[in-house]
Design a protein around this nucleic acid. Structure first.
Lengths: 112, 112
DNA sequence: TTGACATAATACCAAAAGGTATCATATAAA
DNA sequence: TTTATATGATACCTTTTGGTATTATGTCAA
């Protein structure tokens, strides 16, 4: 059985939830506290905090204390690792697109 | 051609399980039946079939009948859509890597 | 037709996921 | 110091998930 870095597993797991993905897109625009994040979601602060913890376990965010607040900051390197995993398939989809484009061009050539 | 992210949720959900990700890497090398796939995993055929169904729901594979067998084939376009979602963050990690590389080069320059 | 084989369908189970409510703790402010 | 605020930590509940076992269906081959 292939052994993948366990943190990549935690990253994929964290990305599986739509609320967490939306949290990442919000953190792309600006870091924010748990309370600020909770203001954007129809769930309790406790639930938002759980989601942020899972994002942190997936190395997708880092958390920094500022007084009694906790600043949540995007850490995009984990996303880059996911991108690297996807690259394992990229020539495959490129091939498929190439064949498709070739077929389209052939059809256009016939119609001219 | 812009096919907008239809149901990326099902794709992300399918990618969250390590067995399913390994199934995708196996299908990258060659399409195969349910029974063949089951030979590579320590679980029943029924469990493998469930995983393949979830991969199909995530548009990551297609299933084709061949007699009494079912051929499972990689459909990488859904992975390309995931890659597109990640691109929303790519300048972020590029920035971070650029800063890191700059710092490394500066350190090397100091040591020479 | 009969029997073996590959898969489909269903019921069931334990554990994980996603959520709430409640209480404790640490810090800011009056 | 007292009080309000921001978060942490549990306990608990319901639904989903990943797995099994069992039975049914369709197809190949003798």
């Amino acid at each position: 059985m292939q052994t993948m870095p366990s943190d990549l597993q935690e990253t994929f797991r964290a990305l599986a939830d739509p609320s967490r993905r939306e949290m990442l897109t919000r953190l792309r625009d600006s870091e924010m506290t748990i309370g600020e994040m909770a203001g954007h979601f129809p769930m309790t602060r406790a639930a938002v905090k759980k989601h942020l913890t899972i994002l942190e376990q997936g190395n997708l965010i880092s958390v920094h204390a500022r007084g009694r607040e906790r600043i949540n900051r995007l850490e995009p390197l984990a996303l880059k690792e996911v991108s690297g995993w996807l690259d394992y398939f990229s020539n495959f989809w490129d091939d498929k697109l190439t064949r498709l484009q070739t077929a389209v061009e052939a059809a256009e050539g016939n119609s001219k």
